[in-house]
Design a protein around this nucleic acid. Structure first.
Lengths: 201, 201, 201, 201
DNA sequence: CTATAAACGAGACGGTACGTCTAGTCTTATC
DNA sequence: GATAAGACTAGACGTACCGTCTCGTTTATAG
């Protein structure tokens, strides 16, 4: 309470057991597996707990909803599988990004997670907000940087602003994935040609 | 009523009361209202029955699931609000169709139904099948006719096939609606210009 | 709408399926069995539902708590096993009643129900109220009648009022049952002799 | 322990490897208070720990169950409030003991503890055993001594053996406390008169 | 003019999952 | 080594809907 008290740093009453990393990973994997194997309908908190060998309370302690569990896996997976190109500001890198995105949505099990969250966001405003804040907005920021970089480098000349351009490029890919259609190589090429170099042709 | 009628259906196993049209409409409106007012999460069969003043069994008797209720309303509404142009095979009519589509998704309460069904289709294969068979496929057939008509008339010259072209046009609109973004007039114009008259400019 | 309709009595808006008697009995028996076999600690609503082959909601629909289930069985059983003598206003019938009571508490499985409810009443005011209103008070009314009848007939001459007399007679029996002690024949005899015929000896 | 020890830890006489008496008392008082204030239903280990400002583990380390906590307080309180008379082997001292007992059960907050434990003993065999071994049996031994002392002194002449006599005296008192009834002075007097001096009148 | 049979409202039923609570155990870091 | 803090597994709590199944009533045709 005297000088000694003043010297002591803001009290760190930290103690107690720390979070169990194994439990955290078990939950993430269980959620992922259940979604891929049995669909979103089978993705209940009880089922996740059962499959992960974890108590329900452990899930509720760390995640406010099953949607946040999926978001955790999605953020990690999408960062690995479909990083936004930041180094080479070329039209080709944009094309490559879109092809990777298409492959992710149609072939990668983790792509199902994005589609499921995009779907759930239509049913639940909280999901919509979380999906935007934690996944879509950060990615969009990097996508904008990718486009403006390439534009500044003279590689592309989009008619629309960066946001609308990205939506025009991604929209068809996402929509076909949502409707269960494949995404042919020509579609991506045409989108890039038509929207990024409208006059350069 | 006459001898002819009696002859045409000699064994009428049918008897008793016929379907109550008032109950049918009450269910459709209750489902629509609940979706718009409280979201898909509040759209339970019990809530629909409660709001419609109808017994649950009456719903289960006529609809296999709540999704089919929504489909019934969607098919009727979309036929009225966003008919596929069939008379004038011009680029302008395509543009008008896309603008109507964008307005439907972002402004019309009935547009929420389409987004909700598209979402639910990600969670449930039965919904996906119904949505395609009863809504998306018939509309796509008319959209294809619209595009081929305009192409034959020399009004447009799409690079892609009619299906991919429609997805490239609709995808951005749907995607922005799904992510809660508005759909600016310039986006539709650019899509039409870039994808339907790539060389005609 | 005619005079006939007006004449018809106020319509009985009865509809819906009636209560399932089999489910009701299954619940009562399951609760009883669980209490006797595994004790009050194992008497959870889930366990009752499981053992009765009944949905939890069915229990919650008809009983506000598991205590009321036990009360239902207790009221029925105690009416059968330890009826309060009403016909013969003799000291002997009182003695017989107390012996039956002692046997009920120590030998009859249903006696465990009374002890459990008396115990639970100490933990929960709602139980205390229900136990009094539905079981103890009605029985006490009949016990009072028994005592006053015998007193009027000159068979007994209790010093205390009927309530205190009954408590003085039953208290030792209940207390020994609560503490797991047997109830010897001499105890009942001495209580009757000492409290009902203090001067008659 | 001496001045040297004090010097070695100038500011921290507290903590170390011995049992923390402050924690022990905090737990006992918290349990007592919770029982009196919110009833047995609110008496959870978590609530005790919370109210006592003590870790759950500290409770589990020293007490096998919350029942033992209550027993600790009960033994201490009952020894103080209702000691069994050992000095004067008179009928009057027995009467005084019973009156004290009645007052303890109906007026003293600590009396609630005995009723709660007697109740819990019906639900849980471990509680029953502990209650007997640590509380009821030792007290009963002293009560027996009280009765035999008075009998030998010619002050009383009970018909029944000492155990049954004590149960016949205490039973009505306990039963009325359990059922929420008051214990009138006349009841105790009549019990003493009727059971201890059946022929001496 | 009945008699039948379908559709209706009401709602009980066996279930599944929800999100919360407490039990009792185990771990970490502090004193 | 005892403590405060608190994460962990386990499982019951009471609620909301699910989809199925009677009930008894209503009503439009069939006989």
């Amino acid at each position: 309470m005297s000088a000694a008290a003043t010297t002591s740093q803001p009290r760190r009453p930290r103690s107690g057991n720390r979070r169990d990393e194994a439990a955290r990973l078990a939950v993430l994997h269980a959620a992922d597996d259940l979604l891929v194997e049995h669909g979103f309908g089978a993705l209940t908190v009880e089922a996740i707990a059962r499959r992960a060998g974890v108590a329900k309370q452990t899930i509720y302690r760390w995640w406010p909803s099953k949607v946040e569990i999926l978001l955790d896996t999605l953020i990690e997976d999408s960062a690995k599988r479909i990083p936004v190109p930041a180094d080479e500001p070329t039209a080709e890198s944009v094309r490559g990004y879109l092809r990777g995105f298409a492959r992710f949505l149609t072939r990668d099990p983790a792509g199902k997670v994005l589609l499921a969250l995009l779907a759930e966001a239509q049913h639940d405003p909280d999901t919509a907000r979380s999906l935007h804040e934690r996944c879509l907005a950060p990615r969009r920021a990097r996508e904008r940087a990718m486009l403006t970089g390439a534009t500044d480098a003279g590689e592309i000349a989009p008619t629309l602003g960066p946001d609308a351009t990205m939506d025009a490029l991604l929209g068809p890919i996402v929509y076909r994935a949502l409707t269960g259609a494949s995404i042919p190589r020509g579609l991506v090429d045409t989108l890039v040609d038509a929207l990024l170099r409208p006059r350069a042709n």
